[in-house]
Nucleic acid binder design. Structure first.
Lengths: 193, 193
DNA sequence: ATTATCTATAGATCTATAGATAATGC
DNA sequence: ATTATCTATAGATCTATAGATAATGC
């Protein structure tokens, strides 16, 4: 094929990044091979290297795109919707069952912590984007003052969701999510005072 | 070699489980191959299957052993040492730099969430052992009343440690850990009232 | 004689590369 | 003519198995 103009190739790249993001969140980064990732996008293995220098390069792109999407989703919430709504949606009983549509941090955070600097920088930048839109909702007058407290509260939500996924006792898992909401709201409230 | 009596084989198995635990926490479960795990224990690939039915079987054994060790370490703390000491040790600035000696949940939780039921059951059982020794310290009279609150607080600590590892900004990472201590203590205090 | 471990290997899958192919823009 | 994608493959590594080996307990 060929010469669709730049936009076609860029569109293909975007498709690879999107389908890879879903696959990474469902199966894990390490467990997802390039042939599978490309098949998900309707392509074959060899075409991968026309778009990415390496698998790490893709992972960095996926991390940036996923966190950008999460930031947009939160920013798009109605202006009057509060922190409580964000927390309840995040720690809903459905979220653990749908990793492919879910939070990239909850699905990949321990793997990201072992990735090279390029991936971790993409993660750091992307996450701060997410944190800042939450902080802006919490403290519209001085968002940066809330940054670290929002960061720590978000980290707690991520750990809670991961743990809810790992537990085999569904009832306990649901209780955990409920308690997690209470903790997150209390921690955000401290940030609010 | 041979016939050292039962104990020799059991000792070897324990060694494999211990060195594998360290390797899993440093490199990840999926990224650690059996040949590497066995070499870490001073053995070769083929001997693995005399001890474990499959890699998942090893993972379940490692998860149980790691959480048992964490439970013992917490239970061994002096009786007068409080929750604050546990939290400060967990969220110390050194912990993120030493995954091999660190918390198994922080190193493996998202991978465990994708493992089969055998591994997740081993995780659930082992973690509840850890949670219960903490709950017993917090509420000696009625530990089970604090279980879910301790579970949710612990989940928050796990997420905080994972995030501290993923961020490339060391200063921000240290601020996060500090804020995480404040949140964990506040959440435990709620559990205490 | 027993058996824990080793050597060797099967068959699958991994990341990455090289050169062929085919579909479009000039 | 250009180039996005495909086919084919290299070389490494993965999990798992089969049979050989060697070191000890009886």
């Amino acid at each position: 094929m060929a010469r669709y103009g730049k936009e076609h190739k860029e569109q293909t790249r975007r498709r690879i990044v999107e389908t890879s993001g879903r696959r990474f969140k469902v199966d894990g980064v390490n467990a997802s091979g390039i042939a599978t990732l490309m098949a998900d996008a309707g392509l074959t293995n060899g075409a991968f290297y026309a778009h990415f220098a390496s698998k790490d390069d893709l992972v960095a792109g996926v991390v940036a795109e996923q966190l950008g999407g999460q930031r947009e989703a939160i920013a798009a919430l109605p202006a009057d919707s509060g922190i409580e709504q964000i927390v309840r949606a995040y720690l809903s009983v459905e979220h653990p069952d749908h990793p492919g549509d879910g939070c990239p941090s909850a699905a990949m955070l321990d793997e990201i912590g072992r990735c090279d600097g390029v991936v971790r920088r993409a993660y750091t930048d992307g996450l701060l984007g997410v944190i800042d839109v939450i902080a802006a909702r919490l403290e519209p007058d001085d968002p940066s003052s809330a940054r670290v407290r929002v960061l720590a509260t978000f980290a707690g939500m991520v750990g809670t969701l991961q743990l809810a996924r790992a537990l085999t006792d569904r009832h306990l898992s649901d209780q955990l999510l409920e308690q997690g909401v209470a903790h997150a709201l209390a921690n955000f409230a401290v940030a609010d005072e």
